[in-house]
Every structure is written in C-alpha cells, then in structure tokens.
C-alpha cells in the first residue's frame, strides 16, 4: 500500500520503541506486588467494616444506651439554639407596641430620663448619634435646653424604647 510505503522510515524508527525494556528482573515480583496490595486493601476495608459494625451492634444490644445518646444529642442541639438566640432576647422589648417592627428596623436608642431633664409633656426623644447602635432618625426635635442645659454623664443607661412612650 502506498500509505505504508510513505511511512516506511517512520515505521522503522518506531520499531526502536520495542527495544525499550524495563530494568532486569522487573516482572519477577510484579504480580506478587499487585496481589499483596489486593490483600492489604481487603484487610483495611474489613477492619473499617468491623469497627462500624461493632459500633452499630452496641446500640442494638443496649437500647437504653441508644436512647441516652439520642437525648444527649437533642440537649446539645437545644443548648446551641438557646445560646444562639440569647443576645437577641436581651435586646427586645416585648411589651412595647413597636417591638415587632423594631426587629426589622434600625433600633432606636434613648437616653434615660434620670440623666437629662425633660418636661413631662415632652416625650422621649431620639438622639442623633454616629454610634451605629443608635438611631439616626430623630422623631421629635429635641429642646436645646434639654440637650445642653446640663452636661451628659459619662455613663448613661440606654434602653430601647419607641418614641412617644413615656417612662415616667
């Protein structure tokens, strides 16, 4: 065939590949190495199975142990949920009418009436503040005297009460 003639030189060169041989004695142990690996893999998988089987059998023979294990897991789950929700519970005001909406809106922080003088007719006001905890929206324009008539204490009690609610 013309095709084979064209590639005759290449075919001769490729015959060089047939003379490449592995190191002497390479195949003497090859099959035994493979068989040993098969045996080793089988032993490892059998060991893993027996450990798992024994663990499961432990619960079959002692149902009380299984129940206790399940209860412990449930308690752990409940404990985790309760701990996760605790910071949220401290910040909420369940008796206030705005409590449900306050969860989704920016919380409004107010200054305790004990620290700042306010007239009884004046409702609680919200302070403009750069503190991210405090609200940026004043609902009622504060009286200048109320804000600056008396220096604010260093430490102030902060409570989240909606505007319009009187704490007096």
């Amino acid at each position: 065939m013309n095709e084979d003639e064209n590639f005759e030189s290449l075919r001769r060169l490729l015959s060089l590949k047939r003379h490449e041989v592995p190191p002497p004695g390479y195949f003497h142990n090859f099959s035994s190495q493979v068989v040993n690996r098969i045996r080793r893999d089988a032993q490892e998988s059998a060991h893993a199975t027996s450990w798992l089987t024994q663990f499961i059998k432990l619960f079959e023979t002692k149902p009380a142990l299984a129940g206790a294990f399940a209860c412990a897991l449930c308690l752990l789950l409940v404990f985790g949920i309760v701990n996760a929700e605790r910071p949220d519970l401290q910040g909420s005001a369940p008796d206030q009418p705005f409590a449900s909406t306050a969860e989704n809106s920016t919380p409004i922080a107010t200054v305790s009436p004990l620290s700042l003088p306010q007239s009884s007719s004046q409702p609680m006001v919200a302070l403009n503040s750069t503190n991210p905890v405090l609200s940026l929206q004043p609902t009622i324009q504060p009286s200048v005297n109320a804000l600056f008539g008396q220096p604010a204490p260093m430490v102030q009690d902060v409570s989240f009460t909606p505007p319009g609610a009187s704490e007096q």
Binding site: R12, L13, S15, L16, H19, E20, V21, P23
Partner: peptide
Amino acid sequence: SLNDLDFNTEHDPDLVAL
C-alpha cells in the same frame, strides 16, 4: 524517564537501515 534499550537494538535491521 526512559527505559534502556536492549542489546538487540544495534542488530535490528530496521534500525540499521535507518
């Protein structure tokens, strides 16, 4: 990482021609 060539390589008529 090539294997060595066996001792028959130099006597291979295809390679001798090449």
